[in-house]
Simulated scan of single mutants.
Amino acid sequence: MNTKNIVALGLIGIFTLSSCSDDDSNDMMQENASANLYATSHANGNVTRYNLTTNSVTTFNTSASDSEGIYYDPESDSFTIATRGMTQTSLQTYVGISDMITATINLSVDFSSQAILQNPRDLAVSGDFYVVADSQNANAGRFFVFEKSNGSMTLSRTITTDFSVWGIEFVGNDLYAVVDNTNELAVFTNFLSSNPANATVSASKRIAIEGIVRTHGIAFDGGTLIMSDIAAASGTGADTDGGFHVITNFLSKFNATANGGTLAVGQQIRYAGSATLMGNPVNVEYDAESDTVYVAELANGAGRVLAFGNVSTAGGGNASPALNNSLAGVSSLYFYKG
């Protein structure tokens, strides 16, 4: 039996059942919709695409040997990855990938940025600007801001901050960033317009998220924010001590929490426990329409892509994932539906 097809069918169940409607126009939209989950890997730099509507899995062999951070652009039908390693430290873009549906495809880079990255952890996009969270050390991080234009990726500016960075997410014009080695969340308001040139800046606001030990991944959709908790990065039990938090009505809760304050765990939903198979959930994605969280789990089983459905209503706890697919060294995810 083909394990990947079984996994993809599980994803289709999450996508389709949650989107059912008696309205004919909505049914037609569902039939014409496509949903894809893209995953990167530390193991080989390849990109795996799970097509949730055609029940297929495609592996793109890229020019990278290691990557973390990915974005799919529907206008150019391309994905961009942040590459890592001694010789590959850039953004690489691969164009025209939707019609490629065979199981394994070898790709060549269509264009790339300057080789300036050092330790990329995540990628967030606003318009033509691609922001890479790059962790320098425990006390400092950088945001490399690239501008995509006419088939090129050019460094626009470098923003340095006073904490180690990991996951980042644009919510409107504001850039939210997890504070690595802590349970904190920071925001840089009007990030691009407020920081037009190279600068060293502090976050506009930082709060603690009660219940999280050490956060890494972040995702936002439909008013709900997801944050992952890797807890202990290594040692006994480190492959089962992770989790993620669901924060509905996020903006109102964040705005109501004072700078330096704590968002109470009672205002969140926590998923954690041995049945979740989460130990080091380094990256997360969220689809509000299906109320599904997708998790890049790095520690448990040497790497898994997990999915949990109905996360805002199921109540949290030690829930088993609806999807459990092995993917060695999985490092980041991007969900696209259109």
Rank of each mutant, 00 (worst) to 15 (best):
T16Y: 09
T16N: 11
L17N: 15
L17A: 15
L17W: 13
S18H: 12
S18D: 12
S18P: 11
S18R: 12
S19Q: 08
S19K: 06
S19F: 01
C20A: 08
C20N: 09
C20D: 09
S21A: 11
S21T: 13
S21L: 13
D23A: 00
D23F: 03
D24Q: 10
D24V: 13
S25M: 13
S25I: 15
S25K: 12
D27H: 06
D27Y: 07
M28S: 11
M29T: 14
M29Y: 11
M29F: 13
M29G: 14
M29K: 15
M29Q: 14
Q30N: 12
Q30M: 06
N32Y: 13
S34W: 03
A35P: 02
A35L: 09
A35C: 11
N36R: 14
N36K: 14
L37M: 06
Y38F: 07
Y38C: 03
Y38P: 05
A39N: 05
S41W: 04
S41E: 03
S41K: 01
S41D: 01
H42Y: 11
H42M: 07
H42V: 06
H42K: 12
N44M: 02
G45F: 08
G45R: 04
G45P: 01
V47G: 08
V47I: 08
V47D: 01
T48Q: 08
T48S: 11
T48M: 09
T48V: 14
T48P: 01
Y50M: 04
Y50C: 05
N51I: 09
N51W: 07
N51D: 15
L52W: 04
L52K: 01
T53V: 10
T54Y: 01
N55I: 10
N55T: 09
S56T: 10
V57Q: 00
T58D: 03
T58A: 09
T59S: 14
T59G: 05
T59Q: 12
T59N: 13
F60T: 07
F60K: 08
N61C: 06
T62P: 06
T62L: 06
T62I: 02
A64N: 04
D66C: 01
S67C: 10
E68S: 00
E68F: 06
G69H: 00
I70R: 11
Y71C: 07
Y71E: 05
Y71F: 10
Y71N: 07
D73M: 12
D73E: 15
P74F: 08
P74R: 06
P74W: 06
E75L: 15
E75V: 14
E75Y: 12
D77G: 02
S78M: 04
F79R: 03
F79C: 07
T80E: 00
T80P: 04
T80G: 05
A82W: 00
T83S: 08
T83E: 09
R84F: 03
G85H: 08
G85A: 10
M86T: 15
M86G: 13
M86I: 15
M86F: 14
T87Y: 15
T87A: 15
Q88T: 03
Q88V: 02
Q88G: 02
S90Y: 09
L91P: 02
L91E: 00
L91S: 00
T93A: 07
V95L: 08
G96D: 12
G96C: 14
G96Y: 02
I97A: 01
S98F: 10
D99T: 05
D99R: 08
D99N: 12
